[in-house]
Design a binder for these strands. Structure first.
Lengths: 191, 191
DNA sequence: ACCTGAACACCGTTCAAGT
DNA sequence: ACCTGAACACCGTTCAAGT
């Protein structure tokens, strides 16, 4: 006898995202999610394969939302240097407002739990045209990787509380953006 | 009636490091560690406070070993630019040979599980004199943070398999080191 | 002083039984 | 077609009892 579903995959992923962000990955248990959406834990297995699958779905959603924020940030900005700065700021803002979800994007999840390549690629796209405008096609990939690595490293260190030697973290961020964009632009001229 | 200890804190931490590196953090269970050192799980609590404490001790050891590798790398190098390059290479080599342990250094562990500040500071020390030599005291902290953020970000993205768009990752690394050292040296001249 | 088995409160996951 | 309770194999941790 068919019965109407009492929850949905969307509901479940949304609940998982809330729990992750408020209480961390360890608290993201099937039981917590089930309670949140109003069913019992075993029912979740009708909608997601297992906990790893759920975590993967949360990661995909997060990657797509980050991509949206990055796209928003560069809307209407034509000058590559300004675009890179805007992207870096938007990236940092996202990591600060979604620390737990952001971490998830670079966690070493077991095979099969990995974030879809597509979702991650979209987040990278916004950066590429900006960097390419600054450095030229020859070194676009290397340059983009340098900027992304810096932005990601800065964000995770900040989230982990790794900047402990005093000084102003905001000014270190500004210094970093300015140094990198200048250096990459310079590569264009000298290459 | 006193009985001689059948294991030690050192043994336990060493076993934990082996398990972490070979099977990942999730497999680093009290039961696995106990089996490895030849006792039952409850006995471990005579030597470490709880699993979090054990993880913290593993992280401390890792940070100190990384610091040693960085010190080794710069032994005898006097030119700041070469020192930064050597540090970056040694850092990357360490992350590749100890991927799981390295990750741990920047995980968001619950309060009380955190790596000792001292252990992390020693790893940072080696970099500071090199950067300071290149950029001068004024911007030493910001510049060091820029280099560390890039190196850390590059490493974690590489470990997470985030460089998926083809191209040569090694050449992106070389590009990054060259760009950053040049940019920071330039800051000195123009500041 | 250290180690142990038993116990407790949790997990994720499976599955037969309900509607 | 979906949901459920019961069950299983795991966790971390505590504690009284052994030596």
């Amino acid at each position: 006898m068919p019965t109407p579903p009492r929850t949905s995959r969307q509901d479940i992923v949304a609940a998982a995202r809330r729990i992750l962000e408020s209480d961390g990955l360890e608290q993201l248990t099937m039981q917590r999610v089930a309670t949140e959406v109003g069913v019992r834990a075993p029912s979740l297995y009708k909608h997601v394969r297992d906990r790893g699958d759920l975590i993967r779905l949360v990661g995909n959603d997060t990657a797509l939302e980050l991509a949206d924020r990055l796209d928003d940030a560069t809307a209407g900005i034509l000058e590559p240097g300004l675009a890179i700065t805007a992207l870096a700021r938007a990236h940092r803002a996202f990591t600060q407002s979604h620390p737990q979800s952001y971490r998830l994007l670079f966690a070493d999840l077991p095979a099969g739990w990995r974030i879809d390549a597509d979702a991650n690629a979209r987040a990278a796209d916004a950066l590429f045209w900006a960097v390419e405008g600054l450095v030229g096609q020859d070194h676009a990939l290397e340059a983009a990787r340098t900027v992304v690595a810096w932005a990601h490293g800065f964000a995770t260190m900040e989230l982990a509380g790794a900047f402990r030697l005093g000084g102003d973290v905001d000014s270190a961020f500004d210094f970093g953006v300015a140094t990198l964009t200048a250096a990459i632009a310079d590569r264009h001229t000298t290459a």
